[in-house]
Simulated scan of single mutants.
Amino acid sequence: MELKIGAEEMAEFLHEVFPQVRGMFGIDRLDETILIMRLHSDERHLRPGGTVSGPAMFSLADVAAYVATMCFIGKEALAVTTHCSIDFMRKPEAGKDLLAEAKVLKLGKALSVTDVLLFSEGSDKPVAHASLTYSIPPARG
């Protein structure tokens, strides 16, 4: 598969279509094989016990799958999540950003399937694993 959008253009597109998450995520790496995306973790992402909340981890996995898909199909703001399965495996380290390693496993005309591993920055042990499917709107006109 060949990238249609680079990291900088994708970051601008994400800010344009999702202004409510501006500054929350960053793209560390983007190429034909992998996307590494960052959740700039702060107090709003914590839950009692001082760890990153499940909803914050889901958000990172979901946005990473969306970005990975968009990079291959082009700017399609109306692609939507149709499936997500996430396994929370260990407690993320408090005070550290979370990183998502996303790989598009299958890209068809209607669906994109992406595998995402989440890590606390600096650790090689995943804190969560997610599998997401995105529905790609049919081409217009």
Score class of each variant (00 low, 15 high):
residue 57 M to P: 02
residue 27 I to K: 06
residue 18 F to N: 10
residue 113 V to G: 01
residue 38 R to Y: 04
residue 68 A to F: 06
residue 26 G to N: 06
residue 69 T to S: 12
residue 99 L to F: 10
residue 55 P to G: 11
residue 80 V to W: 05
residue 99 L to S: 01
residue 110 A to M: 14
residue 40 H to F: 14
residue 62 D to Y: 02
residue 69 T to G: 12
residue 126 P to E: 13
residue 52 V to Q: 00
residue 112 S to L: 01
residue 3 L to R: 03
residue 133 T to V: 14
residue 23 G to H: 08
residue 39 L to P: 08
residue 88 F to M: 15
residue 33 T to W: 11
residue 131 S to G: 14
residue 130 A to I: 04
residue 111 L to S: 01
residue 65 A to Q: 06
residue 62 D to M: 04
residue 15 H to V: 15
residue 134 Y to L: 05
residue 14 L to M: 14
residue 5 I to Y: 04
residue 124 D to Q: 11
residue 118 L to P: 00
residue 49 G to E: 06
residue 33 T to E: 15
residue 76 E to A: 12
residue 9 E to I: 04
residue 109 K to E: 13
residue 71 C to W: 00
residue 140 R to V: 10
residue 119 F to T: 02
residue 32 E to R: 13
residue 88 F to D: 11
residue 56 A to I: 09
residue 70 M to K: 14
residue 29 R to E: 10
residue 135 S to C: 13
residue 84 C to H: 08
residue 26 G to A: 08
residue 20 Q to M: 10
residue 9 E to G: 02
residue 118 L to C: 03
residue 19 P to D: 10
residue 33 T to P: 08
residue 63 V to N: 00
residue 90 R to D: 13
residue 106 K to I: 07
residue 36 I to H: 01
residue 20 Q to Y: 09
residue 122 G to S: 09
residue 65 A to H: 00
residue 110 A to Q: 14
residue 11 A to L: 15
residue 44 R to N: 11
residue 50 G to N: 05
residue 25 F to Y: 08
residue 20 Q to A: 13
residue 124 D to P: 01
residue 23 G to T: 08
residue 22 R to L: 13
residue 52 V to H: 07
residue 71 C to V: 05
residue 140 R to H: 11
residue 50 G to Y: 02
residue 13 F to S: 13
residue 89 M to E: 12
residue 47 R to K: 11
residue 112 S to C: 13
residue 104 V to H: 03
residue 107 L to W: 03
